[in-house]
Design a protein around this nucleic acid. Structure first.
Lengths: 188, 188
DNA sequence: GTCTATACAGTGATAGAC
DNA sequence: GTCTATCACTGTATAGAC
């Protein structure tokens, strides 16, 4: 009774970790930081997660789910071109936060994939989801063989502009590149 | 007498650090790692650098110089369009290493800029150099007002594809996106 | 389940012999 | 200049009371 409205502590920890990983990176974020942000004791973290890597794994999973929901939301749009345009607009909407810390998905996936450790395979999943969805949209647009190239282009453009805008801390860079991408989409 | 061929230890440390920062990131690379790679004792690092941050600063500076030399080399090409094309080809040449660890400039600049610490301003410089040079080339091509947008597009495309290829560990992604960029350059 | 206390392994940085 | 030894501190992880 009433346990529907209590956010489970496990989720609370994952969300706090996700935010801190985005702002500071995985390597520089300590479990003490996360515990404090989630308002639980340091020792309690190990009741929910057997290690830091285990928590990191849950964060990647949460990011993957976010992407999945994002994609699902676009499916209500009838035209595949408009769906891709709407995806680009997501970056524009988040341009202020992305210009500070980069893309929340790209930054963590890159940091973990680069290590070539056990988490690197896991880190490809949110990306794969997004890439495959884009390719499908281009295919629906009749791009045929070029669909995978186009998908790669739009995703890497969004990732690259997030990185570049974060380096300079300039949110307008994202809107500028987004306009460029929207124009390009019309030519497909 | 003969000191021309002895690589100064300071440079040796900077190069070892640059390599490790690229492969593992700044945060996860220890001074012990760097000292071992440069074949000097841990304590000796502090004879040349007053802190880890000081060494990091030197690495950024070295990256900036590398970009400066890269740009200078393109100046021998007469057509600005070909100069930009040659820049893209640099990423293709290094596609194997970039597909493992990302762009050596982008990864470190992003990691440091995100912290919003004292090194973040320093970390923008290699990027600024590259961006300004590209804008100048587009201006020479007659792109006028659009030159800054085009410069942003080419740089963020190169950064984004490096990041994406590194996530998946697929070097062919870089060549694929490079072809796309080369075709785009012809339309300017 | 949640907490405090603590063990244990690094890590940046310093001291001082040679 | 280059080294070894060590300090002070932080971070992950565990033990055990409640």
């Amino acid at each position: 009774m009433g346990h529907a409205e209590t956010i489970p502590k496990k989720r609370q920890l994952v969300e706090a970790a996700a935010g801190l990983f985005h702002e500071q990176g995985v390597a520089t974020t300590t479990l003490a930081d996360i515990a404090a942000a989630a308002k639980v004791a340091l020792g309690s973290v190990y009741y929910y997660f057997k290690s830091k890597d285990d928590l990191v794994c849950s964060v990647i999973d949460q990011r993957k789910d976010t992407i999945a929901r994002l994609i699902a939301r676009q499916e209500t749009i009838s035209d595949p071109r408009d769906r891709l345009g709407a995806l680009v607009q997501v970056w524009v909407e988040d341009n202020d936060i992305d210009a500070l810390y980069g893309c929340p998905v790209g930054s963590i996936c890159f940091e973990l994939a680069r290590t070539r450790g056990p988490l690197s395979e896991q880190a490809t999943r949110p990306f794969r989801l997004l890439l495959d969805w884009c390719e499908k949209q281009f295919r629906l647009l009749g791009a045929g063989d070029k669909s995978d190239r186009y998908a790669l282009h739009i995703i890497s453009a969004l990732q690259g502009i997030s990185l570049t805008a974060a380096v300079f801390g300039e949110a307008e860079m994202i809107t500028k590149e987004a306009e460029h991408l929207q124009e390009w989409l019309q030519t497909i």
